[in-house]
Amino acid sequence: MKAVVMIKQVPDTNEVRLDPRTGTLIREGVPSIINPEDKSALEEALKLKEALGAEVIVISMGPPQAEDALREALAMGADEAILLTDRAFAGSDTWATATTLGYALKKIGDFDLVLAGRQAIDGDTAQVGPQVAEYLKIPQVTYVADLTVRGDSLCAKRVLEDGYEEIEAKLPALVTIVKEANAPRYPHAGAIITAYREQKVTLWGAKDIGADPETVGLKGSPTQVKRSFTPPPKEPGQILKGSPADAARDLVAILRQKNIV
């Protein structure tokens, strides 16, 4: 079987610090990592590789430096890595990104399973995975914490707000994986050396995947960022002291004053 894992390179938010003067994020010098839940998706795929001999392909869309994330995936055990990189892809929103990934997946063709993380820690949209499934017209199972593949179908445990849901789906299908699913492996240093010195990352541009220029990048994006800003810090709360009866009276007074009650 062939499993394709979609990964995104993101800034390591654990390492992001705030500029004390401006209150904005300091992005300079922040290391890039594989989006954590994408890494969990890769780990799920690698488990399928060990159990069923699946071939694992990782694919990412991003600037040339995203190659580093793909090398890390190779070091972890992926068989093949593809980077979708082209100036034409710049300015993509989630829709155009999903379309671009969709073109590439169609080019790969004979996949049985597509995996992705639930959402990326930089955008937090959780949209790209489902949109790719829609584009490819295959079943999608989101929020997956446990995945098994039997024959031509998968069985997945979905994490809901108040419990779990078990779902079966026919392959080919797309699943998005949550962090709880596993603890991604650390690559052996020897595999890192091989990934950097011997393995290669395939680069695909817009032409390679036969993308219609109107459907990718800024042109293919129905949404556009109007303005980015840091929300003003929340005002500190107020603690009402005194006996419960006094506190309740004060509370009602305040709520009245603010015209809430």
């Binding site: 580093d68 890390e72 070091a75 650390y186 690559p187 240093a189 890192i192 050396i193 950097y196 010195r197």
Partner: peptide, 16 residues
């Protein structure tokens, strides 16, 4: 040829 390997190894080590 060592730079990439070492920086990857270091970031994996910090994660571990």
């Amino acid at each position: 040829s060592e730079t990439d390997v070492v920086s990857r190894l270091l970031s994996d080590w910090m994660q571990l």
